[in-house]
């Protein structure tokens, strides 16, 4: 009995651990520049036109995924029972256009002050919290278009903390700085790629007890630059 159960366990986790395209089957995500760079490289390797390569891959991935799900059907109840998932998609591809989270706040009619900016040594409000690995995991996802509504909720949650910490704030803005990661050559020469702010969210202080409303303002259209303008540059160190 024990030998049979152990054998079944090994078969179940092996099937469960087989590569799966699940999570990547979203054509909106495929349009992201990071993904496009991958497709371009692979299409070149296969000697195919990129669009044709993407279509063929889409077809293959969907067919494979359907078959894979059928293969998993017998072991899925066991996996659910013991909570033994085997999704080992770890750094499967580098993100060449990563995002950097910025949280800023201002009083009525005032200037924006940067509270937090990823990697900034000065804008470090609640850094111990926002740099938690579990938060990083969420922040990483929020930079992708398919997590847009989760991003709004996330900004709302962070804004609530900011309003509690800074009674003088009337508005909190969350947004991402998105830029291509410099190549080693660019990093050496200091010729950094330009980037821009994306996915802004705005939260206004509401009445106590009333849920915060997260707005999606139109991006300001500020000129692209090589560093997050007005953020890392500003020597902001708010004191709660």
């Amino acid at each position: 009995m024990r030998a049979a159960l152990v054998a079944f366990h090994l078969v179940a986790i092996t099937l469960s651990g087989l590569p799966s395209p699940e999570g990547g089957l979203n054509r909106a995500t495929w349009a992201e520049p990071t993904v496009q760079v991958e497709f371009a490289a692979w299409a070149k390797r296969f000697g195919m036109e990129q669009r044709a390569f993407e279509d063929a891959l889409w077809e293959f991935a969907n067919t494979y995924n359907r078959g894979y799900k059928q293969l998993l059907t017998p072991v899925k109840p066991y996996e659910d029972l013991i909570g033994s998932e085997q999704s080992w998609k770890m750094f499967i591809a580098p993100h060449r256009f990563p995002t950097k989270l910025e949280i800023a706040g201002r009083g009525a009619g005032g200037e924006w002050g940067v509270l937090f900016l990823e990697s900034s040594p000065t804008a470090t409000w609640r850094a111990d919290l926002l740099r938690l690995e579990r938060l990083r995991s969420s922040i990483f996802r929020w930079g992708w278009p398919n997590y847009s509504s989760a991003w709004s909720k996330g900004c709302g949650g962070i804004a609530a903390l900011a309003f509690a910490d800074f009674p003088e704030l009337d508005e909190v803005r969350c947004r991402f700085w998105k830029a291509r990661t410099p190549s080693p050559e660019q990093a050496r020469s200091g010729d950094l790629p330009v980037g821009q702010w994306t996915s802004p969210r705005l939260v206004r202080r509401g009445k106590p007890g009333v849920p915060l409303v997260v707005e999606r303002p139109t991006p300001t259209g500020a000129a692209p630059s090589t560093a997050p303008v007005g953020a890392a540059a500003a020597d902001v160190e708010p004191t709660p």
Partner: peptide, 11 residues
């Protein structure tokens, strides 16, 4: 399993 899924051209 994680190695098998590292299919990026960079890997």
């Amino acid at each position: 399993a994680t190695g098998m899924q590292k299919v990026s051209s960079g890997w």
